[in-house]
Amino acid sequence: MKECAIVYCEDKFGTMDGKTANGLVRSSRNYEIVGVIDSTKAGMDAGEFLFGIKNGIPIFKDLPHALELLKKVPDQFIYGIAPSEAFLKKAERNLLFYAMEQGMNIVNPLHEFFTNDQEFVELSKKYSVTINDVRKPPEKKDMHLFSGRILSIDTPIIAVLGTDSAIGKRTTSVLLEDALIKQGLNVAFIATGQTGLIQGAKYGVAIDAIPSQFMTGEIENQIMKAWTNEKPDIIIVEGQGALSHPAYISSCGIIRGSRPGAVIVQHAPKREHLGDFSYMKMPTVKSEIELIETFAKSKVIAVTINHENMSDEELDHTISEYENDLKLPTTDALTFGCDKLISSIFEAYPALKSKQTVTSQ
């Protein structure tokens, strides 16, 4: 049985900084999400607010309000915000202490590790709760350098990259994983960020918390573990940031470590500036494709769209425009599903089609 969890996302649910909470509301294999905390949207249904369909996950104004209305105290309190500063505010620190007092275990996706904080450690012992620092890397002696082992496997590896952070790469990756499984394929998904790991990915590493010297080796090691244990037909690797993004090097490590044979690129056509960098213009999808294909020596086989701030008409027009101009299958996986992506994968890797046991409708 899944443990139940409540997700804290004050003032950020449905925004870029609320991507961890957003992802958990959409999909969680580890936890049953019983509520979201965001006083600015209290009383609403989280699913209806996020994607227009009620899913029975209520939004509460604060933790006492949630505990008053829920049938039992949740097992886990998940900090569901991914702020650019990556550290707790004082009020949030006190809230986490209160959650621990109520007997809730803490799931922490920040770069600030609570297990290194004496006050958190002492309270966790006092109230017999656990702290999971999701991003906390292993000791350097336990990290992996790139070994080249990945060069010996012939399993197709698909990376889902993008033109910015918090643009939907993980969402598309998870949707594609589920769609390929429904086609009868054995799929391994490699998470590369904190949200995918919290959602329950079996393999992965929070790549932005790994020293750069070990990035490629840690990605390679997770892929090799999945390949050894699962004997997958295909491996899907979640991207982080963007290869062109001046503030992140995650995509470089992911590309070098995973050695993808093919790439899907996610783009938000109406996003004018990089998410946390309003003074920097977004790259075009065409320029990102050219950069990826040059850097990775891999072929981009499809484009996926994040439809933020787009009308249905704009979305349809953009899909047609991209397919005409880029000569690549283009879709919005959240709106239209993954049929075009699956077709592009089968075209790139014809041998996979023989493993298909279900025909797309």
Rank of each mutant, 00 (worst) to 15 (best):
F13W: 01
H317V: 15
D312G: 11
L352I: 00
I301P: 02
I219P: 00
A242H: 09
L185D: 02
V265L: 08
L175Q: 12
L88Y: 10
F49G: 06
S287V: 08
Q213V: 14
P138V: 07
G14Q: 03
T216Y: 06
Y248F: 14
D316W: 06
A159M: 09
T228D: 12
K355F: 09
A206V: 15
E10R: 13
I59S: 05
S173E: 01
N229F: 06
H245R: 14
I219F: 11
A201K: 00
P350H: 02
P138D: 09
R135Y: 04
S212R: 15
I254E: 04
D276H: 15
V263P: 04
Q356V: 03
F13M: 01
E313S: 15
V107D: 02
T228V: 04
T357F: 03
N55S: 03
S165I: 14
K286D: 09
Y279K: 15
M1I: 11
K72R: 14
G168C: 13
P137I: 07
N105S: 14
F87Q: 13
D133I: 05
L341R: 03
F189T: 12
I207S: 00
G47F: 06
N324H: 09
F114W: 11
T20Q: 04
M224W: 13
E314D: 13
M224D: 08
D178F: 08
R170D: 11
M280G: 03
L96T: 12
F336S: 13
A247K: 13
I81W: 00
A302K: 04
E308A: 13
D45T: 03
I210A: 03
D45S: 06
N186P: 02
A242C: 09
K41R: 15
D17F: 12
F295K: 06
F114Q: 05
L145H: 12
S258K: 00
M310L: 02
I59G: 10
D208G: 05
F77W: 00
T155H: 05
I153W: 10
G103V: 11
F277A: 15
K169V: 07
Q266D: 15
E119L: 10
K71L: 12
K19T: 10
I207T: 00
I255E: 01
D62H: 09
T130Y: 09
L334T: 14
V187H: 08
T20I: 15
M280H: 14
K54R: 13
S343G: 05
I210L: 00
N105I: 01
I223L: 15
T163L: 01
L243S: 08
Y31I: 03
L145E: 07
V265N: 08
Y203R: 04
S28A: 03
L328K: 11
A242E: 05
I255R: 06
P283Y: 03
